[in-house]
Nucleic acid binder design. Structure first.
Length: 752
DNA sequence: CGCTCTTGTCATTGC
DNA sequence: AGGCAATGACAAGAG
């Protein structure tokens, strides 16, 4: 016969392993600081969660935490642990890409997030899905969005655990209940949601943007420069830029860059953003407009509207994602190769080289991206001290409208992003489909990421089949039947029903007693018998016993209303008489041993009284009768055993509840993990779409550039690069390659 | 007959 | 110090 301990131990071990597998990590400090019970013993510790020491130690060591194991606060205890586990699960999935993507999608929480292009619908889905998750009615919506994700996953071929894809209404209700428990605990769901994190980041961003606006926002101060001024990225010095191109080119380039702006902010179809774009586009000077008007075009345009901030943020989102993507997969050299380090002196110094041949043939010199320039502040300024690696020529396409360009503004070389080094120069005439895919590397990398994600889902994800298998394993190994619907309340009710049935099969007196009060069963069942009742009648009378018995129970627990609220006490109505027959003879057989002993010793009161009376009343009762030592000893033994029996039943029930709660926690964690995996896939897909848009626009812009002879630039020789000040530069490809190589080494060094 | 499960009981510990 | 709850361990009985 295997002991119950073995079952429990094995079950807990499996739970522990399972929790660890799905990423639950235990940080005791966190629990302590958050006034939550230490869960190490449950999740990690070798001792079971049932050791009394834990609770006692909790009382001893944790101020303000004195959850009695019998208390209903135990539910909060488990809820807290579950919440923490969810947090852990989130932490486990904090892949940079996921975080950034989530932050991006939630950048606009007013519900105005939508793709500016029809193909951005995925971003919409992601966004809505996330917001749904954050809602209080998370359960239902989550299931809906998860289904939506599942479809998308199928499109991608990604394998995400379909755990919650087949959420039943019961699951949904359970989620809702748990969610309310979380609220009661004081923990908002936002703790685990991207939106919450995004809010935090928004706060940070606001702070950051505030500084940036002070420093560099064009058109707001004395430092606003005319667009045709070049700015030294290092010194902030400005000087006139040569404008060899005609106004026609200027206007065209400006429009192109505006379109680039528009299209690279695919999430930005906010209520304001299209208006901004349209206004910007309308304000673009026509080819017949006087040239003087154009010089100051962008600055007032971008500052005049109310939403340059949106543009800025969208640029920032885009570039940060690009950056993060490059950082995340450094194996793809093409994409990282040309990422200019922040504040790279190469970029800034190029801006100071206006005499280069290329410089004199700028065609995009007016297409300032000032509205987005500050968004490059993502890049850290740590590389500013890099020596000037080259004095080669560089074409400052866009004089920045921003003046004292913050040192945090790095330059991003789009060259490497868009044009692989092996680009041939034949396709440089027009920006057409014949241009090689400059984003091929990035896209491949994104695909690789998705593939790796699928692997991750396969390796770590628990699909429903796996979950059920684990569940079966656990159930079988633990030796305990873990009915998922066996919540504490259901346990109580089930036990209460069993008690009721057993009571009804007992003597008539005890049956009536059980009918009077659910709790009165506790004393009556198991210790009441015909003989005992007869004994009682001899002394007190069976009829008078019942109200008094009820009184005993109340006196025993002081507060009857409390008893009805304590479901774990209901089960105390246990039945010691298996299959008790109605006859008195059978009932004699079915009496407990203590009842037999009490009867044999002619104890003048019931075992129920002996067991359930408070000490004072119990002693008072003993004093009323002349009892022998043997009788007194037996009575005390009966009392001790009876109380211990109830305690044992409570203890077992608590064990079972603990196991059930652990099981529920595991299921919740599995659901959360599956959801996060789906979200990550969605974010990656959105990122890929954005990159494709950037790529096409880059090709379009580059294809329209013309040198002084009106010939297009060769993509194999030149590339566009975003400078740290927000300007777009046309630089030789060899230079871009050098920068990219330098950029490539840094992430590796950083990781070492 | 052996196994599993439930239940009761004892011993111990700590509040 | 006594009462009591909690719990591990063991045993008995039922299925």
């Amino acid at each position: 016969m295997l002991s119950l301990k073995k079952y429990l131990t094995e079950g807990l071990l499996q739970f522990t392993i399972l929790l660890s597998l799905i990423g639950v990590r235990v940080d005791v400090d966190t629990y302590l600081t958050s006034q939550l019970p230490p869960l190490r013993e449950i999740i990690l510790g070798p001792s079971s969660a049932y050791t009394q020491t834990q609770f006692h130690n909790l009382r001893n060591t944790l101020d303000g935490y004195g959850i009695h194991p019998k208390s209903i606060d135990l539910d909060n205890y488990f809820t807290a642990r579950r919440l923490l586990s969810q947090v852990r699960a989130l932490d486990r999935l904090q892949v940079p890409t996921t975080e950034v993507s989530a932050w991006l999608v939630h950048r606009d929480p007013e519900g105005s997030v939508s793709g500016s292009q029809p193909s951005s619908g995925l971003a919409l889905e992601s966004s809505s899905g996330l917001q749904d998750v954050t809602g209080p009615d998370n359960g239902v919506r989550e299931s809906e969005t998860e289904q939506g994700f599942s479809e998308d996953l199928e499109d991608l071929g990604a394998v995400a655990p379909p755990v919650s894809g087949d959420l039943t209404k019961e699951d949904i209700d359970l989620i809702d209940i748990l969610w309310r428990q979380d609220i009661d605990l004081g923990a908002g769901r936002e703790i685990f949601d991207y939106s919450h994190r995004q809010k935090e980041q928004d706060v940070d961003k606001e702070l950051q943007d505030g500084v940036e606006q002070e420093d560099t926002w064009p058109g707001e101060g004395e430092e606003v420069l005319a667009p045709n001024l070049l700015v030294d990225g290092e010194t902030g010095e400005s000087f006139p830029a040569q404008v060899p191109g005609g106004e026609n080119q200027t206007a065209l380039s400006l429009e192109l860059c505006l379109r680039l702006l528009e299209a690279t902010c695919p999430f930005g179809e906010n209520a304001e953003f299209p208006a901004d774009i349209s206004s910007l586009t309308e304000a673009v000077p026509s080819e017949s407009e006087p040239p003087g008007l154009q010089n100051n075009l962008l600055s007032p345009l971008l500052t005049g509207t109310e939403s340059p901030f949106d543009l800025e943020q969208q640029w920032q989102d885009l570039m940060s994602i690009m950056e993060m993507q490059a950082m995340e997969v450094n194996t793809s050299t093409n994409e990282i190769l040309y990422n200019n380090p922040p504040g790279d002196p190469l970029s800034t110094n190029y801006s100071l080289a206006p005499n280069t041949p290329i410089n004199q043939n700028v065609s995009l010199h007016q297409a300032s991206l000032g509205g987005c320039s500050q968004d490059f502040s993502l890049f850290s300024p740590e590389v500013e001290s890099l020596p000037v690696a080259s004095s080669s020529t560089l074409l400052p396409l866009v004089p920045s409208n921003s003046t004292s360009l913050n040192s945090t503004f790095g330059s991003t070389n789009l060259t490497g992003l868009f044009f692989p080094p092996q680009l041939n120069g034949t396709a440089n005439d027009t920006a057409g489909p014949e241009l090689p895919d400059p984003l091929g590397g990035l896209l491949d990398e994104a695909m690789l990421d998705e593939i790796s994600l699928m692997d991750l889902a396969i390796e770590e994800g628990f699909n429903s089949v796996q979950a059920s298998q684990l569940k079966e394993e656990f159930d079988s190994d633990s030796g305990l039947s873990l009915d998922s619907s066996h919540s504490p309340s259901s346990l109580s009710s089930s036990e209460g029903s069993s008690s009721s049935s057993s009571s009804s099969s007992s003597s008539s007196s005890s049956a009536s007693s059980s009918a009077s009060s659910s709790f009165s069963e506790e004393g009556a069942v198991g210790y009441s018998s015909d003989s005992e009742t007869l004994d009682l009648e001899e002394v007190e009378g069976a009829v008078g016993y019942q109200p008094e018995y009820s009184k005993f129970c109340r006196m025993s627990y002081q507060d009857p209303s409390q008893l009805s609220c304590l479901p774990y006490l209901e089960h105390v109505g246990h039945n010691h008489t298996y299959n008790m027959a109605p006859s008195a003879l059978d009932s004699d057989k079915q009496m407990s041993r203590d009842e037999h002993r009490a009867r044999a010793m002619k104890i003048p009161f019931t075992n129920d009284k002996i067991i359930n009376l408070p000490v004072e009343e119990f002693n008072e009762l003993l004093s009323k009768y002349q009892l022998s030592e043997a009788q007194l000893s037996l009575i005390r033994d009966i009392r001790r055993r009876g109380k211990n029996k109830m305690a044992a039943q409570n203890c077992r029930k608590r064990k079972l509840d603990t196991i059930l709660n652990l099981k529920r926690d595991v299921e919740d964690l599995q659901r959360d993990k599956a959801r996060l995996l789906r979200e990550k896939v969605e974010f990656l897909r959105s990122l890929r779409q954005m990159k494709q848009k950037v790529q096409s626009l880059y090709q379009e812009v580059f294809g329209r550039l013309r040198d002084e002879n009106g010939r297009p630039y060769s993509p194999s020789q030149y590339a566009l690069q975003y400078a740290g000040d927000g300007s777009v530069l046309l630089i030789p490809r060899t230079l871009a390659d050098q920068q990219a190589r330098r950029q490539e080494r840094k992430p590796k060094d950083r990781r070492k």
